[in-house]
Design a protein around this nucleic acid. Sequence first.
DNA 1: GCCAACGTTGGC
DNA 2: GCCAACGTTGGC
Length: 151
Amino acid sequence: MRHWLIKSEPDVFGVDDLARAPKRTTAWEGVRNYQARNMLRDDVRKDDQAFFYHSSCEVPGIAGIIEVARAAYPDETQFDRKTKYYDAAATKDAPRWFNVDVRALKKTRLVSLEEMRRQKPLAKMVTLRPGNRLSITPVTEAEWQHILKLL
DNA sequence: GCCAACGTTGGC
DNA sequence: GCCAACGTTGGC
């Protein structure tokens, strides 16, 4: 099983929203970055687990643990003119964007970005690399285990 | 709200 | 294929 870190803005959809969703599951949609898209489509499998990270908020950091309930499938919002994710170049036959379904496993204490940066074993974590903005990044087994111990 | 970093677009 | 302009992300 692979591990990931996926970001969401709590003002838009946070860990509590996921916990309240039907079956504690939702489509994690709106990814419009090719690198992230490729990872979603090619590398993320059903039953993979991920940290749910709150970004663009007062205290950014890991707020929960989720699992992938469904592997990548075409993101419906790319066909919907009413959403900001609409992409005129995408067709049903050749979808350009994909999403996965994620299910809440548990809410954790907030492990802040600042705390993560203080952890030596996390020094090389992809999401902590300068300039990184990807909404999904891989987490190594060692990083995963280290963060679990912090909880 | 600012701004650095990065990605995308489009003219040439 | 280069690069300037523009848009987005996300920490602060």
